[in-house]
Amino acid sequence: MSHATPIDLRSDTVTRPTAAMRQAMANAEVGDDVLDGDPTTQQLEALVAERLGKEKALFFPSGSMANQAAIWVHTRPGTELLCDADAHIYRWEIAAAAGLCGVQCHPVQGQGALFTVDDLRGHLRAPSIHAPEPSLVCLENTHNGAGGAVTSLADMQAMQQLAATHGLPVHLDGARLWNAATALQLPISALAACADTVMVSFSKGLGAPVGACLAGPAEFITKAHRARKRFGGGMRQSGILTAGALFALQHHYDRLAEDHASATYLAQVVDGAGGARVVMPHTNIVMIDLPTRRAAQVVTRARELGVRISEWHPGRVRAVTHLNAPAGVVATAAALIRQALEEVLAS
């Protein structure tokens, strides 16, 4: 069996704007956001700040830029930030903390899939003239590298309290914080309260084509605005972009549980195929561990059968459920992924 247009489960970033979202973007009221503000962007920023329980929010072209702006404001050159050893900020932002902010990442290696307050405590250095001073703790929820795993509210609160005892601010990479709040059945503001600043993305589970927001105290966001300008993130009629993000937040947030249910179904179908083992998902990301390092072959065979998945590393592949892959489509994809696993791993 094959599909002329493959089912694309490589990421939840592959979604296309819905017709209604495109209409909202086409009809957006706009202004010059650099000169005197864009009204649609201002509406989105106000709504995000309200949802997250923060004083102010600022729109960015990408989550990576928003994360780096937060680091730029929170830290000073020659210090270090502590983050999970597999954090997006450390692994997938091309050393921007070092290159842009002069800050070293100190990776915290957890005992499990997610680092805990005890892991963090064990990585805080004793003061020494020979060691860099810490300036920031970065959390990530959901955790992309751990397969969309969710850090509990209690664990986040514990890490925030530990950071506070050392005089350290906390930044939360919440690219998929919407998914974490959905999985925990909590208001997103409860999770956002565990950090001084929070980045949230609109171009993943919510299905917008582009964009993220950084939220925090008003004085901090004013400084982050300068960082955004420095990084080249000033935009003009940004309302065309923020209208898509605004529509996504208003119309797609409440359906995220559907993606989580689809991911769980997919995991149950493919687990054990050809000896593969699934990391049971907390949210919408399914990591499939292979008994041999044949991820590239599995990805190729799945594509031939009509499903696009991604190679995470040679012994692991990843599938992500999303807005453009409803339950029936995921059911078809799950059967095809299982077939690909069985064929490749048996050969």
Rank of each mutant, 00 (worst) to 15 (best):
N67Q: 09
L206K: 04
P6W: 08
Q161I: 01
F220E: 07
M156W: 01
I129Q: 13
L256P: 09
T182N: 13
I7D: 11
R294I: 02
G147C: 08
K54W: 02
E29Q: 15
D271A: 10
I240F: 13
G148K: 01
R125E: 07
A146S: 15
R303W: 06
F60S: 03
E45Y: 02
F247T: 11
P6G: 11
S262I: 03
I240Y: 14
L120F: 06
V269L: 06
V137M: 03
R76D: 05
A164K: 14
A325H: 07
E133G: 04
H106T: 12
P39N: 09
A218V: 09
L191F: 03
M159P: 10
T75F: 02
T5N: 12
V200Q: 08
E258I: 05
T165W: 01
V73M: 04
E219C: 08
V298A: 07
Q43W: 00
A26V: 01
S347F: 00
L336W: 08
H171M: 14
G112H: 12
S203A: 14
H143Q: 09
V269A: 09
W72N: 14
Q42G: 13
L52C: 06
I309A: 09
A340D: 07
E343C: 06
D32P: 01
G315H: 07
A267H: 07
S201K: 01
L323E: 09
A146G: 13
L341E: 08
G147S: 07
L305P: 11
M21L: 09
L266C: 11
A335I: 02
M235H: 07
H106D: 10
C213M: 04
A164F: 00
E29T: 15
H3V: 05
E45C: 07
K54N: 11
V103N: 01
E311H: 05
F202R: 06
L266E: 11
A346E: 14
C101T: 10
A70V: 10
L153S: 07
G306Y: 04
A85M: 03
A335S: 14
D118T: 13
G63E: 13
L241G: 02
V330E: 05
A66I: 03
E45F: 02
R16I: 03
L214G: 05
V210Y: 01
Q161S: 15
I94M: 11
Q250R: 13
I71S: 04
A97L: 01
E219T: 14
H171N: 08
V14K: 11
H251F: 04
L290I: 09
H123D: 13
A215Q: 10
R125M: 05
A158F: 03
L256Q: 13
K204V: 10
T41P: 04
L184Y: 08
D118Y: 02
R230E: 13
G207R: 05
R277Y: 00
Q237P: 09
A26S: 08
A296C: 06
D173T: 06
L341Y: 04
I129L: 13
Q161C: 08
H106P: 01
V344A: 08
V279H: 12
A46E: 14
A190H: 13
A333G: 08
